[in-house]
Write a protein that binds this DNA or RNA. Structure first.
Length: 495
RNA sequence: GGUACCGUGGCCGAGUGGCUAGGCUGAGGUCUGCAAAACCUCCUACAGCAGUUCGAAUCUGCUCGGUACCUCCA
């Protein structure tokens, strides 16, 4: 089997993945800012890195997966006044800041469960790590890379850039930044325009505030991730993930802060997922094209022609490589919904197959199947190419279904190959890609009723009373239960 | 303006030098009392132009078009 390779944003190259500590992986992923409801765009990184997490586990690594909750409120620059996003909204909704944060945290957790994402090992909050952040800022000041002004502390980017490769991750040139940075509040306090805040003095109306050596205030935009990744994963760890839009300035700043504090670049591999677009445009508040996850699941949004289930969305996202942009459309989602159904039904069929041959009667087919299975491993190892894994599975679907329908004899494949098929489908579909059946759970009473209807319909058909048999089937279809007459005379349902 | 990235068949999307990915849609067929599903077959694309090469969707250059980041952002 091939070895795992990942595209490292930091080196801009595909590299062989090696764990810092053999057998263990430390992974940090930038989590949500819980000042509002999660939208479709948020689904991508958390599903992407859930699959990364799952695959690393599958490979046998012990993984510590840290994903933060940003609940301290980043800055929103509106005009001259810097307003804390969370505090501001709290006033609007007449809620306590922590009440608001709790509400959206709960909603976020609900969405993650719907997507069948595994829980991270640690989910630290920014507000819970104010002390660590202050300590880190102190260290940076001591090292001479930050300065205090009017109760705020800024990171000296220019000085940092003289000694370290600032801009390497995002491919930025520091002189260009000088030219293009806009006027922001507090700009006059900074030595240079590229400097960013580590600590901000809180204006009187600011609700979220903490004591610090520099007076009452709150932490800057980027320091929480540096503090929490260091605390839980160490000065150097394996993987840092997040959306591409965080590359600059967030991750670049994170690298700078951590490098000064820890005398080491934080992560060895930087992985960035690409954006989801709607009609070719990035989804975002500023574009006014946001589809919240609650709207997506309910279909309650003007762009949506129907509701899309969490697994449809997950499948849709995994059908594209995580580094490519993914364009949303009803057509694409509906295609994903059908594709997912097709692959899952084939998986159900596969589970019932029994091998009958020690040696494959059709060695060519047997070989083809094994080749496709091997390609699934190779595809995942090739920078988590879930799109190709699914394509391989789709190529196996006709073979599985043909055996089930007896178009192909079960002995065409060796028993070992059939067992391997079962193992691979289970492993990849459920464990690695994290997909699951969304059909209703088995209900014995409903089953009893359906069996009765099957019985009645069978009798009607034997008397060629098709009016009755069709009535049963059509009315069941009307309430969302599909009845299918199988080749062997049995009847199956999907609902 | 600066810096990146991208442009694949009706739609979505893999693929980075030769071996027609895959899904959805559409057409025809097999099966079926009829359906549905399934299976089989068909629709053989890589923005344009020029170049490198025995050979390019894949490399190089130019042109056109698009997107992202530079500002909170997944």
């Amino acid at each position: 089997m091939s070895e795992l390779k990942v595209v490292n944003s930091y080196s801009r190259q595909k590299e062989v993945f090696t764990a810092l500590t053999p057998g263990h992986v430390g992974m940090y992923v930038c989590g949500p800012t819980v000042s509002g409801e999660s939208h479709l765009g948020h689904a991508r990184p958390f599903i992407t890195f859930d699959v990364v997490y799952r695959y690393l586990l599958h490979l046998g690594y012990k993984v510590r997966y840290v994903r933060n909750i940003t609940d301290a409120g980043h800055f929103e620059e509106e005009g001259r006044e810097a307003v804390d996003k969370i505090a501001d909204k709290a006033v609007l909704e007449k809620l306590e800041p922590m009440e608001l944060v709790q509400k959206y945290t709960n909603l976020f957790h609900w969405a993650m469960k719907e997507f069948n994402n595994l829980e991270p090992s640690i989910e630290p909050t920014a507000t819970g790590h104010i002390v660590e952040q202050i300590e880190m800022i102190k260290k940076i000041i001591e090292a001479g890379y930050a300065y205090e002004k009017n109760g705020s502390v800024y990171f000296n980017v220019k000085k940092y850039a003289e000694n370290y490769p600032y801009g390497k991750l995002s491919g930025r040139v520091i002189d260009d930044l000088l030219e293009t940075t806009r006027d922001l509040s507090g700009q006059d306090e900074k030595l240079n325009k590229q400097d960013f805040a580590l600590w901000k003095a809180a204006p009187p109306q600011h609700i979220m505030r903490w004591n610090s050596p520099w007076g009452e205030g709150f932490p800057g935009w980027h320091i929480e991730c540096s503090a929490m990744s260091t605390k839980y994963l160490g000065k150097e760890f394996d993987i840092h993930g997040g959306g591409m839009d965080l590359q600059f300035p967030h991750h670049e700043s994170e690298i700078a802060q951590s490098t000064i504090c820890n005398h080491h670049t934080p992560a060895r591999y930087w992985l960035h997922n690409n954006m989801i677009t709607i009609n070719g445009k990035k989804m975002g508040k500023s574009y006014n094209n946001v589809i919240k996850l609650t709207e997506l699941f309910s279909g309650n949004h003007e762009i949506l022609e129907q509701a899309y289930s969490p697994m449809t969305v997950r499948f849709f996202i995994l059908q594209t490589h995580y580094r490519s942009t993914l364009d949303f459309s009803n057509e694409a989602l509906q295609a994903a919904e059908k594709g997912f159904k097709r692959i899952w039904e084939s998986y159900d069929n596969l589970k019932k197959l029994e091998g009958t041959a020690v040696t494959a009667a059709n060695p060519e087919l047997d070989e083809k199947v094994n080749k496709l299975l091997a390609d699934m491993d190779n595809s995942m190892n090739d920078d988590f190419n879930t799109a190709r894994v699914l394509a391989d599975m789709f190529e196996l679907v006709p073979t599985i279904n043909s055996i089930k329908d007896k178009h192909i004899n079960a002995n065409a494949l060796s028993t070992a190959t059939i067992e391997k098929l079962k193992t691979y489908f289970h492993t990849y579909l459920e464990e690695v890609l994290g997909l699951r059946n969304e059909k209703e759970q088995n209900d014995d009473k409903l089953k009893g009723v359906l069996d009765l209807l099957v019985e009645i319909r069978k009798e009607a058909r034997s008397k060629k009373d098709y009016a009755t048999s069709d009535k049963i089937r059509n009315q069941l279809a009307g309430i969302g239960i599909q009845m299918k007459d199988e080749k062997d005379g049995t009847v199956s349902f999907s609902y």
